[in-house]
Amino acid sequence: MVEAKRRRPSALKREVAIPAIAVLVLVVLWEVLVRAFKVPEFLLPAPSVIAEESWKVAGNMGVHSVATLRTVLLGFALSVAISLPMALAITSSPAVGNAIYPLLVLTQSIPKVALAPLLVVILGANELPRVVVTFLVAFFPLVISISTGLLAVPPELLELGRACKASWRQELVRIRLPYAVPFIFSGFKVAITLCVVGAVVAEFVNADVGLGYLIVTSTAFFKVPLAFGAVIMLSLMGIVLFQLAVMLERWLFPWSAAGNVRDAH
């Protein structure tokens, strides 16, 4: 216990301080090189210019960020709601898995940028097509991760459960799902970041608000610093959502193998 407490400051330094210093060095280097080589602002603005222009429209940036975040969270919630039962169906029977996997691959092989305009025609020019595109981008890796976790249970544990006359439901809740927790949260981390990508792709095609819409309109009027500000906001959104998934796993499942491996290094 004492040794674990001693490791926490070093782990905090490794996970927070070092990345922060690396980002700071990158920003300073970016600023210096842009000013030294006198790069035009419409090609590559300096970080100070990006911050200044973004601050001027901070309220508007906040409105666009909230709109994109709403689409991201709705798409992620839909992907979780559909992926979990689909993964259970895939792992319940090889025949069902063989029937569903080709359909999953088919949906993943369709370019979402090409699909987005069709969804606007089918579903209307509202938020629903954006949520569906976000869902389509995120749910495939989530299904694969959950399915892999459910199938990765050692046969010895399954045999032990059957020897104890555990029902299918008991086997799922007490053996398969707990063992699959690291896989499930790995899928969550990938899916939540892909949701940010999917939301922006959808906003490029159909939106009157959102960070993707802000990037399109800013570049159309050569407001490149503002477009860079929106891109940075998207990056921060992805990082924060990813870290929230990490924190949720550590809080709910501290025994998770993924968290233990991360803390051990």
Rank of each mutant, 00 (worst) to 15 (best):
L73D: 07
R35S: 13
A17G: 08
L150Q: 07
V132G: 01
S186F: 08
L194F: 10
P155Y: 09
G198W: 04
S48L: 13
S79N: 02
L234F: 09
S186W: 07
F37T: 12
A245E: 00
V143R: 01
I21D: 08
R35M: 10
E3H: 12
A227F: 05
A87G: 00
I90S: 01
I122V: 15
L236H: 03
K223Q: 14
F37I: 10
V39I: 15
V96L: 15
D263I: 08
F185I: 06
V34M: 10
A264Q: 12
L194E: 08
E171R: 03
T217E: 11
K223V: 04
V80C: 08
M233N: 14
P102D: 02
R176T: 03
T134D: 02
V133I: 15
E15F: 15
V231K: 00
V205N: 00
F242A: 10
G161T: 02
A81S: 14
F185Y: 15
V196T: 11
F188R: 05
S83E: 05
L142V: 03
W55Y: 14
L214V: 04
G259C: 06
L43R: 09
Y101R: 14
P45T: 07
F139R: 00
P225K: 05
G161S: 06
L128T: 08
V96Q: 06
V27K: 05
L172H: 01
V25Y: 05
L29S: 13
L115W: 00
F204T: 00
L241V: 04
L69A: 14
N260G: 12
P154Y: 00
P40Y: 08
L84G: 00
F140N: 00
L248M: 13
V32H: 02
F222I: 13
V27S: 01
R250C: 07
P94D: 07
A191H: 00
P47R: 06
V27F: 10
K13W: 14
L158I: 11
L104D: 03
E203Y: 11
I232R: 01
S79V: 00
N126I: 03
P102N: 04
D263E: 13
V216G: 02
A125R: 09
L158M: 13
F204S: 03
C164W: 15
T71R: 12
V25K: 05
V190W: 01
Y179E: 07
V28D: 06
I110W: 01
V34W: 09
K189Y: 13
L119W: 01
R70N: 14
G62I: 11
L84W: 01
L136A: 02
A20V: 09
I100A: 04
N206L: 06
N126A: 08
K223R: 15
A163E: 08
